[in-house]
Design a protein around this nucleic acid. Structure first.
Length: 424
RNA sequence: GGAAAGGUGGCAGAGUGGUCUAAUGCGGCGGUCUUGAAAACCGUUGUCCAGAAAUGGACCAAGGGUUCGAAUCCCUUCCUUUCCUCCA
């Protein structure tokens, strides 16, 4: 959500921002409802002030025993009361319509975010290491999963449907190892505080992070008002909903492991094989609450923290500055990290690190106070994956596969996995 | 799933229809005193909206309602605690 003041003072920026994102947003409606609301309030509050005065006077007259005068004053209030009651009804209608419109206005992309329509316009800003070369025929990860018995695709599908994965044997072990390795790294080395949040959240939380109302269709519903999280970003960010944070605690850095549930509707037919696009996956997520002036530095270090996992595991990747059109609704700036998967011959999006500035903080009402006595201000909120497990799993297998069909386990992961090699 | 009690400022906690502009205590901030600190004393201390400002309006879990007037009465929802039931 954007500052309502911005619609009065910097309307052009909002219009330009939505245009850069290629999102059609009801900006005119916000402007119209906002001015309608203010005109109404001006009038209504004057009437309320009058009403309060009369009511107070009636109270005093009653206290003095002047019953008749009190009754006379009462008779005069009928018209005022009806007027106020109608005005309040109108105010409720405008407020609801205004909020509904505001909730679907996209965040304004940062100046450093490139123009563009889709992922083809993203700008690569760096690579790490080089693509590995092989002197034998590479297999895609799903073949390695089958031959090494790491995943039982058929039975996973049987129990839950396509896009649900049953990891088996060393595959299950590797999955747990990745989670522990990453969460240990982010908490013990990079200074994030570990959180283990609920995997189901209520509607208010979904609105707080910006998933609702616009993207309700993408999320699994568990009950009337309980939703399965699409990312740990939702419960972790909302931990501090409606709170004023202590300035000394900023930047507050949290890391969480959760499963993530996504319908992935509309991507039918894409990446249907293997682990690249599934309905349930594990992920370690980092969330930062920062002072406004720190948020762009914190975005750089957040991205570096996510990258460091890939560096430790020796996986080639690139970082792209996501263009306005590909960034989506909530972000002001976003870096994607794409890991190289030689078996499928593609870079896989494995992390997305974003600065939302005050967009989420305003929705979730998360603020901080610069100093005692100062007015509370909205924090800046950032998050990034560190990292998503299935694509990391896939890349690892494809990069570390050997000519004999075995897969080597990179050194830092061995204590977690308990072996140095998967053998067919 | 059943029953009961309850939700008031940063915290504790009074308030059951009219100076509630919410008592009091703790905590925070400022001051007096002190070489400094503690203690004591004095003052101060919420958020949001509209307005250039003066000021006005709203907020006692949330949303409706009754009333000239609601923290207080009524309805709905949410949450918490305790007990029972069930359960890893």
């Amino acid at each position: 959500m954007l500052d309502r003041q911005l619609f009065r003072t910097e309307l052009e920026r909002i219009i330009a921002g939505a245009a850069r994102k290629h999102i059609d947003a009801p900006i005119d409606e916000v402007v119209r409802l906002d001015s309608e609301r203010r005109a109404l309030l001006l009038d209504l509050e004057a009437k309320k002030a009058e009403m309060n005065k009369v009511s107070k006077m009636i109270g005093q007259l009653m206290g003095q025993g002047k019953k008749d005068e009190a009754e006379a004053a009462k008779a005069q209030t009928k018209e005022l009361k009806d007027y106020i009651s109608a005005g309040e009804q109108k105010e409720r209608e405008i407020d609801a319509a205004l909020l509904a419109a505001e909730l679907v206005i996209p965040n304004i992309p940062h100046d450093s975010c490139p123009d563009g329509v889709d992922e083809n316009d993203n700008v690569e800003i760096r690579q790490w290491s080089a693509q590995p070369s092989f002197d034998f025929e590479l297999k895609p990860h799903w073949e390695l999963c089958e031959s090494l018995g790491l995943v039982d695709f058929a039975r996973g599908t049987k129990v839950a449907g396509s896009g649900f994965i049953a990891y088996t044997g060393w595959g299950a072990r590797l999955q747990r190892a990745l989670i522990n390795f990453m969460i240990d790294h982010q908490t013990l080395k990079n200074g994030y505080k570990e959180v283990y949040p609920p995997f189901l959240v209520n509607r208010a939380s979904m609105i707080g992070t910006g998933n609702f109302p616009k993207f309700e269709e993408d999320v699994y519903r568990a009950d009337d008002d309980l939703w399965m999280i699409p990312t740990a970003e939702v419960p972790v960010t909302n931990l501090y909903r409606d709170e004023i944070l202590n300035s000394d605690d900023l930047t507050l850095k949290l890391a969480a492991f959760t499963a993530c549930f996504r319908k992935e509707a509309g991507s039918a037919g894409k990446d249907t094989r293997g682990l690249l696009r599934v309905h349930e996956f594990d992920k370690v997520e980092m969330v930062k609450f920062t002072k406004p002036e720190d948020s762009y530095d914190e975005l750089e270090s957040l991205t570096a923290d996510a990258e460091s996992v890939l560096q430790l595991l020796g996986l080639h990747y690139r970082v792209v500055n996501v263009c306005a059109g590909d960034m989506g609704f909530k972000g002001a700036k976003q870096y994607d990290i794409e890991v190289w998967a030689p078996g499928v011959g593609r870079y896989l999006e494995i992390s997305s690190c974003s600065n939302f500035e005050t967009f989420q903080a305003r929705r979730a009402n998360i603020r901080f106070r610069k100093a005692a006595g100062e007015k509370p201000e909205y924090v800046h909120i950032l998050n990034g994956s560190g990292l998503a497990c299935p694509r990391l799993f896939a890349s690892l297998l494809e990069v570390y596969q050997q000519a004999d069909g075995s897969v080597l386990i990179p050194e830092p992961l061995r204590p977690y996995v308990g072996t140095d090699r998967f053998v067919p």
